[in-house]
């Protein structure tokens, strides 16, 4: 596959190129792919590997001529969840980073628009982290609120 040849590593996985990179290599690699036909940045996704203590960020890119999907994967430490922002390469990355910051709490250095995105007034832990106990949270937040007393057909 073209992306694997370009970057000199990676493997084919279900018809896509899966390329494991370190955090320092990612900027160069995205640039290189962008210059060589991978001009569609599809999305940035994040996986929380709780037992390995890692977050995996996956940069998905698409090449229209070759019809090739490349996934650039980076592991970052769960306790030191900082990553360099890539939004200068593709402007849409800014929005993805904003979402991941909200849902996983990862800080992207260089992205100064990490403001609340989908959630409103959210002072709690980022909800998509695996150690966010959503059942307990539901109990505390929603189930603790009482029903309104009285008969439902009752008027004033």
């Amino acid at each position: 596959m073209k992306s694997i040849e370009l970057l000199g590593k990676g493997e084919e996985m279900h018809g896509r190129a899966y390329i494991k990179l370190s955090a320092d290599e990612i900027e160069e690699s995205i640039k290189k792919l962008k210059e060589n036909g991978f001009n569609h940045f599809v999305m940035l996704s994040c996986v929380d590997w709780l037992d390995k203590g890692k977050f995996e960020l996956v940069y998905h890119m698409w090449n229209y001529e070759e019809k090739e999907h490349a996934m650039l994967s980076v592991d970052i430490d769960r306790n030191n969840d900082v990553m360099k922002s890539m939004s200068h390469l593709f402007p849409q990355i800014e929005t993805y980073e904003r979402e991941i910051h909200e849902m996983y709490g990862i800080k992207f250095e260089g992205n100064n628009r990490l403001t609340p995105f989908l959630l409103e007034n959210w002072p709690h832990d980022p909800p998509m982290r695996k150690d966010f106990d959503s059942k307990k949270f539901v109990k505390q937040m929603y189930e603790s609120i009482p029903f309104i007393e009285g008969d439902e057909n009752e008027g004033i």
């Binding site: 937040m141 929603y142 603790s144 609120i145 009482p146 309104i148 007393e149 009285g150 439902e152 057909n153 009752e154 008027g155 004033i156």
Partner: peptide, 20 residues
């Protein structure tokens, strides 16, 4: 008569809304 209930228990509804 839900709307009457809303008037009658207005404080309680508001309290629940505030809590959530």
């Amino acid at each position: 008569r839900g709307w009457e209930r809303y008037q009658k228990y207005y404080d309680k509804y508001k309290e629940n809304q505030r809590r959530v």
